[in-house]
Simulated scan of single mutants.
Amino acid sequence: MRIGILGNGGMAEALGRHWVQAGHEVLVGGRDLSRAAETAERIGATSGSLQEATSYGEVVLLAVPAEVVVEAVTRLSIAPGTVLIDCTNAIEHSDFTLAQPAVAEAISEAVPHAQVVKAFNLAADTVWRAAPHVFEGGPLGVPLCGDEPAAVERVAGLVRDIGCEPVPSGGLVRAALLEATAAFAIGIWVTGGDVRGLFTPLGAA
């Protein structure tokens, strides 16, 4: 599969490296072409502009800051049916609330001809960089929210490529819940809490 990546930061490098190793063709795009080239060289990908990454393949990872992602996709020419993976979180770090709710839905409204899937937003780039992980005997689950089953399944395959387990989590309207979950969880983690202890196992009395 051909995968374009918008951005050249930690998420771009962490996920892009796994996908290259899985045999996918990856192009890293950035406003700063030299930085994009450096990231691409580290992971064995090719590089180019943001538009070149957008036009490169069937799937595009939106690995740019949440505060600029809607503006970025609005300015770029995105082919109908392109799968956009939104891994962003618009978190206000002063109190770990949402600085901007429903980012994934805003992306979909800006480019309605694309197929947006929310994924990879519940963990930092360091987690994805060190994947795969096993917790309590099972792989790390990655929730996916999207309205197009074929798009969700395509992203599910990319989740499996990094050794994780895709968890279909409903339509794009539920992506806002994923974004809120990330803000909530990060707020607990920074105070030393363990989020895993907040949810009872299925079937627990």
Rank of each mutant, 00 (worst) to 15 (best):
E13H: 04
G23L: 03
G157K: 06
T126R: 06
H93L: 14
A104V: 07
V167Q: 15
V20W: 13
I43N: 04
A36S: 13
L144I: 06
V142A: 00
W19C: 08
C145W: 08
I85F: 02
R35L: 09
L177N: 06
G30P: 00
S108Y: 02
S47G: 01
S94R: 13
E109Y: 11
L27H: 03
G16W: 06
A123R: 13
P201M: 09
N121Q: 05
R42I: 00
I162D: 02
H18I: 10
W128E: 03
T74D: 01
A175C: 14
L178K: 05
G163M: 07
P112Y: 14
E148I: 11
R75M: 09
P139I: 06
T54V: 15
A36T: 01
L202A: 15
H113F: 00
I85W: 02
G141K: 15
A72Y: 01
G44Y: 08
L144H: 05
L202H: 14
S94K: 09
W19Y: 12
I107S: 07
F96K: 11
G146D: 08
R31V: 10
A106C: 08
E41H: 12
R174L: 14
P166L: 06
A114V: 12
P132A: 02
P132W: 00
V167F: 07
E52K: 06
T54H: 05
V103Y: 13
R129H: 12
A110K: 07
D194T: 14
L177C: 03
P143I: 08
T126W: 00
V111T: 10
A37V: 04
L178D: 03
G146T: 13
F199E: 02
V26R: 08
G170S: 14
A37E: 15
V134H: 09
V68H: 07
S169F: 08
G192Q: 05
A66S: 11
A123S: 13
